[in-house]
Simulated assay, not measured.
Amino acid sequence: MKFLNNVDLDKNQLLQVVIHSAAVAPGSPVDGQIYYNTATAQYYYYRASDTTWVPFGGGNIIGGDGLAESTVAGITTLSVNVDGVGLEISADIVRLKDLGVTAAKLANNAVTTVKVTDKNITFAKIQDIPTMTVIGRVAAGSGVPSAIAIINDNTMASALATNLATAGSIKAYVDSRITELGSLQGAFNATTATNFPGGAATFKGHYWYVTVAGTVQSVVMNVGDVLIANKDNPSVTLAADWIFLESNRDQATTTILGVVSLATAVEVQTGTDTSKVVTPSTLSQRTATTTRTGLAALATQAEVTAGTDNSKIVTPLTLKTVLDAALVASGFATNVGDASALTYVVTHSFGTKDIVIELFDATTGATVYADVTRPTVNTVGIAFAKAPALNAFRVTVKKN
């Protein structure tokens, strides 16, 4: 891959880069060119002023106090000076020797220890507490614990957010409520009743079945319908406290669940009846037109290419085939390069800047990169850093 003009990364990073590697310096270098010498394991840059390949890090490095420096093959190494008596280097680690710090180096009382004495740690809440009480914390966040009462109330009437219940009372309460769920309470006459059934003894899940049709609190009920309490002690006048299950249906509408009849093929084609149901058979007979919604057939490749059928649908594949053929007809190619000019103007005459441009080596076919612009809707500008040889590169232009 060749870039035939300067590349501006606009201050972006060049990631995972490997510098040009070779055992010998590249030929015909230019000022500032760099490479990595695999024989010396060192980077070099070319200095045109004296035609010299200079190793990176070729400047002076001087070891300061406590450091020693040595240079081999252009590589400078800095080492730490140790006396080998009090300080040493072992396995690439600088460390004190076993006798590196003498007793004389430790001042009196330099190291002290503190013992945690008995009773320094206490817990005031660990003590005798009343019966049916535990120590804990019910307030939000961490803090001081307190005594929390334990209740043994099977009805949970005394339950608070600040006490605990025994396992026995919780079981007794849950068992009593479960026995109430789904309990049939009896028949309901919707003709004579003015309110819903229930009261203080009604629990969520209690239900009645309608034996006589009628309307109660604006709710229409038929024989066989079921009323289910949706909460404990539900209101006898509020329909929101109840669930109504209908088992006897009239003709269905857009707002009422019920029975339906099936539409004929003619009714489906007409599309005006709002009270009948469409079957798969009648639906397949409702074909789409430019003025009517419905089912449509897929066009063949020949039909899409001809472009005369107005009743069938074009698929992505048949459309792509037609477009690909059109794109072939909208292409342009030419060679550039005269061994002297750096810029070239290619005229394609497509009348738009919505074009795709590619530049490749006319001999090898490898894609190359130069500075490409679209100065007008009919031309392409190509600029090189060095003048290309005669007809060295080929330019292809495709119209989108």
Rank of each mutant, 00 (worst) to 15 (best):
D371R: 00
S281F: 07
L257G: 12
V216A: 07
T291C: 09
K320M: 14
L160K: 08
T264F: 09
Y36W: 02
K115Y: 11
I62L: 08
R137M: 06
T367M: 11
A297Q: 14
K2S: 12
V219A: 08
M156G: 12
G84I: 03
D50T: 03
M221T: 11
P197Q: 01
Y344I: 03
G136W: 01
A139F: 09
V368C: 02
V368N: 01
L283Y: 15
S330K: 15
T376M: 11
N37C: 02
A187V: 05
V346W: 02
N5Q: 09
V322Y: 08
I135V: 12
R286G: 09
A252H: 13
V7E: 04
L96F: 09
G331M: 03
I93D: 04
A91V: 00
Y173P: 07
A288S: 09
P280R: 10
N37A: 04
N60C: 14
N60Q: 14
V226M: 05
A229C: 06
L245I: 15
G57Y: 06
G199E: 01
K171N: 14
G58V: 03
K125G: 03
V259G: 11
G27S: 00
L323V: 03
F384M: 11
N120L: 14
H348E: 06
K119N: 13
K231T: 15
T215D: 14
L317S: 13
A23V: 10
N310H: 05
V114P: 10
I357P: 02
V80A: 10
L15K: 06
Q217L: 02
K125W: 07
D250F: 12
A25E: 05
T291F: 12
G199Y: 02
T52R: 01
I34G: 08
I75H: 08
A140I: 04
E180N: 07
L359N: 01
P280V: 05
D241S: 04
A383L: 12
A103E: 06
T133L: 15
G224S: 01
S146H: 04
S330P: 02
K320L: 06
Q185M: 04
Y209N: 14
Q127T: 15
G198Y: 07
T379V: 06
V72N: 08
N5R: 14
V210Y: 03
T254I: 10
T202C: 03
S275Q: 10
T215P: 04
P316M: 05
A159L: 10
I75F: 11
D241C: 09
I150F: 10
I357A: 13
L184M: 09
V18L: 11
T202R: 09
N81Y: 13
G59E: 13
L262C: 04
R249H: 14
G143M: 01
T289V: 12
A172V: 00
T264V: 04
A107Y: 15
G351L: 09
Y369D: 05
T343C: 05
T290I: 11
S311N: 14
S183I: 07
L238G: 13
Y344R: 03
V397T: 13
E246G: 13
A107P: 07
V219I: 04
I243R: 03
S79D: 12
G337R: 00
G74S: 03
I93M: 05
Y207H: 03
T253G: 04
K399C: 13
T321A: 15
G224T: 01
T113A: 14
